[in-house]
Design a protein around this nucleic acid. Sequence first.
DNA 1: CCCTTCATGATACCGTCGTACCACATTGGT
DNA 2: ACCAATGTGGTACGACGGTATCATGAAGGG
Lengths: 211, 211
Amino acid sequence: MPKRVDHEERRAQIAEALIRVAGRQGLHAVGMRDVAAEAGVSLRLVQYYFETKEKLLFYGLQHLTDRFTARVGARLAAAGPDPGPRATVEALLLASLPTDDESRTFHLLYSSYAILSVTDEALAAQPFIDNPDAAENAMAGLLERAQGAGLADPEADARTEAISLLAMAAAMGTSILVGQRSPEAAIAVLHHHLDRIFTAPGTSERGAGAN
Amino acid sequence: MPKRVDHEERRAQIAEALIRVAGRQGLHAVGMRDVAAEAGVSLRLVQYYFETKEKLLFYGLQHLTDRFTARVGARLAAAGPDPGPRATVEALLLASLPTDDESRTFHLLYSSYAILSVTDEALAAQPFIDNPDAAENAMAGLLERAQGAGLADPEADARTEAISLLAMAAAMGTSILVGQRSPEAAIAVLHHHLDRIFTAPGTSERGAGAN
DNA sequence: CCCTTCATGATACCGTCGTACCACATTGGT
DNA sequence: ACCAATGTGGTACGACGGTATCATGAAGGG
């Protein structure tokens, strides 16, 4: 038999091409020929590894969320070993804002998929990240731990605040994406709420902050 | 000359057809033939009143925002003459949540247009509502008035809180749209923050609230 | 050594979509 | 009464997109 190529790696490579071209032209405007050209392969190859466009799109979503998860993990790791709850929460929120090309593309495409899923049941059935509310649970858990450690307002409802923070980050991310707001303004708003929730004793060095 | 028909009315009627079919199939999947069929007219007619699909889409966005503005105005009027600042703010926020078919369609299509505008400069140049930050200014103004009247926490930064409230409403609206959260849960979170901001003296009847 | 099987390339097909063109009806003005 | 401008319908055209088909190259096993 011939070259015996790693299919999974090839698929990943094509998926990255999909993400790049979709980030440029918009997910709706991407065709198999565009993906093939971007990946430097022939149209037939794209068909070979993903039989149908639908499967390519699904795989693209999966790849997108995987890459984003990895990126957030790296950001957390870069915040040092065992950072405080506030630093962790802040890192999570800031990582989800579209501040550079990669996160801009992620935000754009994730939003595109989400909007698509409203009218496309096949896409809605797809595992959209593990995120029915994984991020929400993680964030709520962090806030509760902070409360337990006396670092956050014990009166606050952790789950409600978690939902609020994530919602604000998401919506302001979109504002940034469409050029309605600057990343700095969004970060300032998030800091405001972190200051409100975290009754920080020694963790009040914010302003010339991390990222 | 022949029938002398009201072009503007005809355009509005076709635009509503566009909105209906786009709400069903998604904005990306709508074609001129679909719009014509939905409006009960011939394809040629759609071409006659909007020469190009792009113009149809632009007009559709305009019509969508007009209808939404009117709807919000009606909601405010329904809240009685000169309601308190909190009731006004609450009405504005709740009106923007996708709780019924009309608001669901609005939220879906507005989000679709917004995402589209990221990669389509012609659409980005369009007056996307009057909303670079009209809603934000209005909301901030309301909060400031409430502070002046001693109804809201005077320590709070009105603009920051306005941005926060609108952002949460927007993001949770999307969560509702994709079926990730119930309208009730979203409303509860919003109420939580209204309770935090408004130091309501007699306005503490919330829970079996307005809408 | 060759044959089977995996991998890849070129290209054809069929549907759809936006747009353009042609034809006709209707009606108000002269 | 006829003409011309407005409104409306039917249909064709060119392009593009996803998918399918045919063909070929490469390599490991009998």
